[in-house]
């Protein structure tokens, strides 16, 4: 118990220390505002401009979450198909690896070409970028299910669907939630990426505009907001993970309680 409190205290100090060091170095080395604004300036700007920034935050978040939801739906479906059939696994794998190795930045121009600039490419980029880790994890979770666990249900005369629902999917849950943490962060990156290229809304757009107007502290405000949102999304899914799949990480659970 005391260990976890100490770790929390230390990581908070590390974050505070990072900003303090930044502030101090900027003052000592006399760094120009146009190159690297001090954290205090950035936070003041963030506070002053918050009413303007708020709709953009919502825009980025909603693009991320819609894209993520679509990506999860597609990813789970593909993962189940690929993971339950050895043939499908072998057949589909090269194509999946091929898709995954395309840098996702490269798809943004295509989405813009098809749908014009705006929200749609942001959602689609967020979707495309998060599908692959989910597919791979669901498929791996299903494919690595111990045959003995399935045998237990087979001897009861369970159907394939019953085995999938009662053994395969619960067994794949830790893999699924681990991939969700990665996927939500990727979706977020995808949405912002698309916003910086082709949009008139969202934090990505704000940062691009601010940088072309040399409002450097606003650019950094956007950056820090992105970091905060990213951490928040990650934290939400970590919490969800430990709630749902505690059985798989019981070792650490015992240590905490």
């Amino acid at each position: 118990m005391s260990d976890s409190i100490r770790i929390r205290f230390l990581s908070t100090s590390l974050i505070v220390g990072f900003f303090l060091l930044w502030e101090v170095l900027c003052i000592l080395l006399n760094v120009s505002d146009l190159v690297l604004p001090r954290p205090s300036e950035i936070f003041v700007t963030m506070y002053d401009r918050f009413p303007v920034l708020w709709p953009h935050i919502l825009q980025t978040l909603s693009s991320t979450l819609i894209g993520f939801a679509l990506g999860v739906t597609i990813g789970v479906t593909l993962g189940v198909i690929v993971g339950t059939s050895k043939v499908a696994y072998a057949v589909a794998y090269p194509l999946l690896v091929g898709f995954s190795s395309i840098p996702k930045v490269a798809v943004v121009p295509i989405f813009v070409l098809w749908f014009g600039s705006g929200t749609t490419p942001a959602i689609l980029t967020a979707m495309v970028i998060c599908v692959f880790p989910i597919v791979v994890n669901i498929a791996t979770g299903l494919a690595t299910t111990e045959p003995e666990l399935e045998d237990v249900l087979k001897t009861m005369g369970a159907s394939k669907t019953e085995i999938l629902w009662n053994v395969g999917l619960p067994r794949a849950m830790p893999y699924f939630f681990a991939s969700l943490k990665v996927a939500i962060t990727l979706s977020f990156v995808g949405a912002v990426l698309s916003e910086t290229v082709a949009s008139n809304m969202g934090i990505g757009f704000v940062m691009m505009t601010a940088s072309s107007n040399f409002q450097v502290s606003l650019v950094f405000s956007g950056l820090i907001l992105l970091a905060l949102m990213g951490v928040a999304l990650y934290a939400i899914f970590s919490l969800l993970e430990s709630r749902v799949t505690g059985w798989a990480t019981r070792g650490t659970e015992i240590a905490v309680t």
Binding site: E148, L149, D151, V152, E162, N166, P170, R171, M173
Partner: peptide, 19 residues
């Protein structure tokens, strides 16, 4: 071969769900 994500009660009840 009990399912690790289920309690003993849920594990023992599994056949009643399937059979």
């Amino acid at each position: 071969t009990l399912l690790p994500w289920l309690t003993i009660e849920q594990n023992v009840m599994m056949p009643l769900k399937i059979v």
